[in-house]
Design a protein around this nucleic acid. Structure first.
Ligand code: FES
Ligand code: FES
Lengths: 159, 159
DNA sequence: GCTAATCTATACTTAATAGTCAAGATTACT
DNA sequence: AGTAATCTTGACTATTAAGTATAGATTAGC
């Protein structure tokens, strides 16, 4: 249960593009790569995923670069994370368990599955209510915003 | 953001041991391996992690096998998952970002970090309130139980 | 003490993810 | 048309996670 490298860097690239969008500015791979501290080749690979997911668009040639494909407020972070790293608990998760025969406690009636589903729902509750626009604020503002997510209102971010 | 194989199988092994505990029975590696549909060698590897985490204890020799190290009600699933697969967002996560120089949007003031923290809190809210004892019920019972978790009360398990 | 059943430890192989490289395609500018 | 800046693609290598193999240690029962 780890964030993948794609998720970590991909989201950060998107945020950076969103900021650049304020000034109607496209960012090139070298710019993004340097800003995020990853190699240009790797940045390119990540940007490709984001492009195929429909979150950014690219312009080639001189004066080219990447921009958001649509307004930050209409980009759900949940969708972004799905594109970059898949879901924690896919709906076919239990079809692909290792063994064939005596799967789980009681096959079709499994409390563990219920737990995983609950965790996925908890994650989705945060990620599907957050848009890229929401990430364009400083950490403190973001902390208080997160507390307003319905269903997650008990969240204590300060440990 | 995927469940690791360790997490998936490790938790299932624990649940099985908990059921066996009802009858004061130890389970051997061959038994567990067959029940969960993984190789004996792999089951052994997973059981070792669980043992080192203090969740199960092993008895060697004839009549040996694994049993829970303590009552199911005192085994928090959050702790189990931590031992099996680490946390989504470790506290030093942002210290270990790739590049050195211009980390994240504004280094010490990062909205992305706040979001990851919120996701981690959401996950913990489910996992730290669930004990192994809670998993010893059927799926339907488990579903309704999960809905009672404070802060997660908006959870809809049926999609 | 011997044996068979059991766990334990470490090393090894395979598969998946992370990250790099190089050749090609597009565009703006002159 | 030529050139330099840019994205695009697929193949490659490196690192980590998943899974296997093997030899050793412990215990119960005879
Ligand atoms: S049936 Fe998939 S976790 Fe139990
Ligand atoms: S500082 Fe770590 S995600 Fe921004």
């Amino acid at each position: 249960m780890k964030l993948s490298a794609n998720e970590e860097y991909g989201l950060r690239c998107l945020v950076r593009l969103a900021y650049a969008g304020f000034e109607e500015r496209a960012l090139t791979i070298p710019e993004i790569s340097q800003a995020e501290g990853v190699s240009p080749a790797y940045a390119a690979k990540i940007l490709r995923v984001l492009r195929k997911g429909g979150f950014v668009k690219a312009a080639r040639g001189k004066e080219g670069g990447y921009t958001l494909a649509r307004p930050a407020a209409s980009i759900r972070i949940g969708d972004v994370i799905d594109a970059l790293g898949g879901r924690l608990f896919e709906s076919d998760f239990c079809d692909t368990h290792a063994g064939q025969a005596p799967i789980c406690t009681r096959s079709v009636d499994c409390s563990v599955r219920s737990l995983w589903r609950a965790v996925q729902v908890a994650v989705d509750q945060v990620l599907s209510k957050t848009t890229l626009r929401d990430l364009l604020q400083n950490e403190e503002e973001m902390n208080s915003w997160v507390r307003t997510i319905p269903g997650a209102n008990g969240l204590r971010l300060i440990q």
